[in-house]
């Protein structure tokens, strides 16, 4: 059977709780070059949106590419996207390997 083409999905996470609640691993210069979701905290905005899943790789945050971003910078970009008052949501472009 054909190998499923990897798909990128745009997920909008509404800021409907005071925490985002995701743990990410990886970043530039690690064996996981793009940040991958490893945990989602129950009750956080990420969990509430229902579309983010452990294992998804985050390609972009609000249109900002995470390609080449070191781990701490990728985490900072995500944290700032959640903290900013300019938007009531965060748009994640995620990629689900092998889906």
């Amino acid at each position: 059977s054909p190998v499923p083409a990897p798909t990128a999905t745009l997920v909008r996470v509404l800021k409907n709780s005071n925490t985002l609640g995701i743990a990410i691993e990886g970043g530039a210069n690690t064996r996981q070059p793009l940040p991958r979701i490893v945990t989602i905290q129950k009750g956080g905005s990420a969990h509430n949106c229902g579309q983010l899943r452990v294992g998804q790789i985050i390609l972009e945050v609000n249109g900002i590419s995470l390609k080449g971003q070191e781990h701490k910078d990728a985490a900072r970009i995500i944290a700032e996207a959640f903290k900013t008052k300019e938007k009531d949501h965060i748009d994640f472009l995620v990629f689900e390997p092998g889906l």
Binding site: T19, L20, G21, I22, A23, I24, E25, G26, G27, N29, T30, R31, Q32, V38, T39, Q41, G44, H71, K72, A75, I78, A79, F82
Partner: peptide, 14 residues
């Protein structure tokens, strides 16, 4: 021996 370190950093974003 691989260039990238084997451990992978993990951070919580609250």
């Amino acid at each position: 021996v691989s260039k990238n370190p084997q451990w992978v950093p993990v951070t919580w974003v609250f």
